[in-house]
Write a protein that binds this DNA or RNA. Structure first.
Length: 862
RNA sequence: GGAUGUUUAGCUCAGCUGGGAGAGCAUCGCCUUUACACGGCGGAGGUCGUAGGUUCGAGCCCUAUAACAUCCACCA
């Protein structure tokens, strides 16, 4: 039997292992329609946070819902090796031991990285278990495992053959701390405080100077010219002349190029082709060289002269500016705020850097993806607006730099001949491998993640899983990785599988702290899901995460909402407890339709409408709305009314009625438990196991179906009338400062006496009425009008008070009548509004008028 | 510089194709009624950011505008 209070520790115990052991998480029935998802593989860098909890709970709800709906569900788990992120963590750990990765060498370092992976994948598994995720562990994958490596090599080589992957020397974003290239989206631009240095460049052969401004003086060692706009009247005569670079006193040509903005700065720009993408383009147009002036760690190289070689770029900047100032060539320094790129991982300022890297040519792939959005291969974004974010990015994304100067990752399958230097790109290493050196670089993590929807199913092999489960039905992810991941899966999927990788992508937001700030390590405002689970239970956490949120929007963590979720679960728990206390063990309880009374028909009607609304919203992946419908049903219709009224029924001597009431209670409870089960599987299973005649587990149950024949407007109307009467008596008692259980007498006038008589025992019990009399007219008191009857609460209050309440009621009705008359006297309304709406308003007006008359009569009779 | 989102009760947020403003929490009052005080019952609380427009009718549609948030972007 259920304990008095719901104890999440007790409830959660042992269930997950049991489910897993019995194989409920796997696929089995090939006759069913398939429904497939893959988990967004978490990085093996550390513990999972609330964002992961949110993301995976959504998927688990979908998986559990779809299983209950009769689908053969596949949900593939896995993790991402997270190249840069993990390597940085491992290096950091080594550094604490006083070792660098170079001390270990590639192979030994990778061993350390695998140790790290093993450690954190265990943590992640523990967390998945805690969250109750129904993942199919038999199909778990890792982005660096052998199968996925094969997929990666295949894709690389195919794209290379098609000319969609190339190696080239371009300006890329260089992270000097991690010493690797980055892709454009791994660079975070922020407006930083900086300085704008104005220098004098002496024009050769004259004593005149050209003023040039820069934010990065240290790059002056790599300058090849000064550029002005040929339409700039001030400078156009200078084109072809030369100036002295104040940094190294070398001569620089002055050239003309339309790129330069006449209005900006001094209108004369220094040009550093190897350290700025625009400058690189200019140099290319003018056939100028592109000398590099920094090393990989952003220290100055030997191009910079003895005084500066080996200095860090910022140290060099300060020294150089001081030197130029000493020579009298510094004009001024302005403080400015300008956009500066930072490495997503190391946070350091990225250095635009000329370097030989591998790139994916994006245009053709992007075009294909954009075209597909207009076809049946489209991916539906939920909410829709995220499609625009995706297409806009696709439209003008640049080539994707995929090579990383790291060790932890998929090594690029390119080989260079030791003597000839010839390069070959091939899936399997060349037979005479001893004559070749493999490319040292590894691929961007996202290169392998992009293949995740199909590589996890065995692609490029034509596996049974691939045939049956691909493409996926839905992908669930937060909006912050649309560019990194979603878009890349889409174009790779289209390119290699000829179909969209998933039909729908469900986008959710990010979780913030209670003040609405992002959770971050530096703020120390992160919340560990484990602590929340300990305090409120995983069911409450899951319920909070998926119901107090709006599609696509961020949400705030809220202790209060978790409390509230936990209270709700306790409510269901106790409703179940009450029902089970009233059931005989193993009693066979089927609803006998011929014995249903108006209350039963009422609750079954409401239940079916609830099931309809919940299902509708579950199918739209609108979990907040779905849960609200259920919540309202549980609180209002079920526990506040049917359950309370059923207590009266259970106390009667009519054995058949009692039995049927129990059957209805059980039916409603069971449906509620199954409806809420996808959100809160642990408590649902616990209650379910207490029900008579249950299956082995709630995981094997089928979702309630709507029975429209249970819809019963008349019974609803009748019970709502009863409810209204009860509520009126209750508020009357509060108004009169009477105790809720104070005895009271009621008088009723009705022309539907048989119906009303059925309601009497309930009215009596719920209002604590000592007497209810049917009368033909009221001698005094305030008549209250209902659909079925008119009712007076007998009391001995004085006339004045009665008059006051009558007047208040009359005033309210007058307002209603005025509203209706105004609306209906509007010719345009009559003419243009839908007929049903007009009819409805007319009926309402008539009702109000009738009521008003009754109240006025009563007042006059006083 | 572009783009998107948000703005509704004290707080956090719902409000579905335009047809009488809702929930949770907080607050006030009453109640230990045998499922639940992690509770029940009854209240109070809103010019729906601002200004126009469309419409018989606008929280919802359109146009401006403000504030906040986020994303994208190579201005030296």
């Amino acid at each position: 039997m259920l304990s008095k209070h719901y104890d999440h520790h007790e409830v959660e115990k042992g269930k997950y292992d049991e489910w897993k052991k019995r194989g409920y998480f796997g696929t089995k029935d090939l006759t069913k329609t398939k429904f497939s998802m893959v988990i967004p593989p978490p990085n093996v860098t550390g513990k999972l946070h609330l964002g992961h909890a949110w993301n995976t709970t959504i998927q688990d709800i979908i998986a559990r819902y779809k299983r209950a709906k009769g689908y053969d569900v596949l949900w593939v788990p896995g993790m991402d090796h997270a190249g840069i992120a993990t390597q940085a963590k491992v290096e950091e750990r080594l550094r604490k031991e006083g070792i660098s990765r170079y001390d270990l060498g590639r192979e030994k370092f990778l061993e350390k990285a695998y140790e790290w992976k093993k450690e954190y994948s265990e943590t992640i598994h523990d967390q998945w278990k805690m969250m109750g995720l129904s993942l199919d562990y038999n199909r778990e994958r890792f982005t660096l495992d052998e199968g996925l490596n094969k997929a990666v090599r295949h894709v690389f080589c195919e794209l290379y053959k098609k000319g969609l992957i190339y190696r080239g020397e371009k300006i890329i974003n260089w992270d000097p701390v991690l010493k690797t290239a980055l892709s454009n989206i791994e660079v975070i631009h922020s407006d930083d405080q900086g300085k704008f240095y104005y220098f004098k460049y002496q024009i050769v052969g004259t004593s005149r100077f050209l003023e040039v401004a820069t934010t990065r003086p240290e790059t002056m060692f790599g300058d090849v010219c000064v550029v002005v706009n040929p339409r700039d009247e001030r400078y156009k005569d200078l084109i072809g002349k030369k100036v002295i670079n104040p940094a190294n006193h070398e001569e620089l040509p002055i050239i003309g190029d339309e790129y330069v903005d006449i209005e900006f700065g001094t209108g004369a720009m220094k040009c550093t082709p190897a350290h700025d993408p625009n400058d690189f383009e200019i140099a290319k147009r003018h056939h100028l060289p592109h000398p590099i002036c920094m090393n990989e760690d952003a220290t100055m190289n030997d191009l910079c002269g003895e005084k500066y070689v080996g200095l860090d770029r910022y140290e060099c900047r300060d020294k150089l500016v001081a030197a130029i100032e000493k020579e009298g060539n510094l004009i001024k320094i302005e403080n400015i705020v300008h956009p500066v790129g930072h490495s997503e991982r190391s946070k350091c300022v990225v250095e635009p850097y000329l370097s030989k890297q591998w790139f994916v040519k994006m245009k053709p792939l992007a075009m294909q993806a954009l075209e597909a959005q207009k076809s049946e291969n489209r991916v539906d974004f939920i909410p829709e607006r995220f499609e625009k974010i995706f297409t806009n990015w696709m439209k003008d994304c640049e080539d994707w730099c995929i090579s990383r100067q790291l060790w932890w990752g998929h090594r690029i399958p390119a080989y260079y001949h030791k003597t000839t230097g010839e390069m070959i790109v091939c899936e399997e290493p060349p037979k005479d491998l001893e004559n070749y050196i493999q490319d040292e670089d590894v691929l961007d993590t996202w290169f392998s993640s992009a293949l995740w929807p199909f590589s996890t199913l065995g692609w490029p092999e034509k596996t049974e899983d691939l045939k049956r489960y691909y493409p996926l039905d839905v992908l669930v992810t937060a909006y912050d990785i649309i560019f990194f991941w979603v878009s890349r899966m889409i174009f790779q999927g289209l390119e290699f599988t000829d179909t969209h990788p998933f039909k729908k992508v469900l986008i959710h937001g990010l979780i913030r702290d209670e003040q609405g700030r992002k959770m971050s390590k530096s703020l120390g405002n992160g919340i560990d899901p484990i602590d929340v689970i300990e305090k409120y239970g995983v069911d409450a956490l899951r319920y909070f995460l998926t119901t107090s949120t709006s599609p696509g929007l961020d949400t705030r963590y809220s202790d209060i909402k978790l409390q509230s979720a936990s209270n709700y679960l306790n409510k269901i728990w106790n409703a179940a407890r009450f029902i089970l206390l009233n059931l005989e063990k193993e009693e066979k309880l089927d609803i006998d339709d011929s014995k249903l009374d108006v209350l039963d028909r009422f609750i079954l009607s409401r239940l079916n409408k609830c099931v309809e609304n919940v299902t509708l919203n579950m199918d739209k992946y609108d979990f907040a709305n779905a849960s609200t419908h259920l919540y309202n049903f549980v609180y209002d219709d079920f526990t506040s009314w049917y359950l309370e009224l059923a207590k009266v029924k259970l106390n009667t001597a009519d054995v058949e009625s009692v039995r049927n009431t129990k059957a209805v209670l059980l039916k409603v409870l069971k449906d509620i438990v199954i409806l809420i089960y996808p959100y809160v599987p642990f408590i649902a299973e616990e209650i379910y196991q207490q029900l008579p005649h249950h299956l082995e587990s709630i995981m094997l149950e089928t979702y309630p179906e709507v029975s429209k024949e249970r819809y019963d407007e008349k019974s609803e109307m009748i019970v709502l009338d009863l409810i209204k009467m009860i509520k009126d008596v209750r508020s009357y008692k509060v108004d009169c400062k009477l105790a809720p259980n104070a005895p009271i007498e009621l008088e009723i006038i009705t022309n539907q006496r048989p119906l009303v008589e059925i309601l009497l025992p309930f009215l009596k019990r719920m209002t604590f009425a000592s007497k209810i009399n049917f009368v033909n007219e009221f001698k005094d008191g305030n008549p209250r009008v209902y659909q079925l009857a008119t009712m007076v609460i007998k009391d001995n209050v004085d006339k004045e008070k009665l008059l006051a309440t009558l007047n208040a009621e009359i005033e309210r009705l007058e307002q209603e009548v005025a509203r209706g008359e105004k609306m209906l006297s509007n010719e345009n309304f009559i003419a243009k509004a839908p007929k049903e709406k007009v009819a409805l308003e007319q009926k309402k007006l008539a009702d109000y008028k009738k009521q008003l008359q009754e109240y006025r009569d009563k007042k006059n009779n006083l």
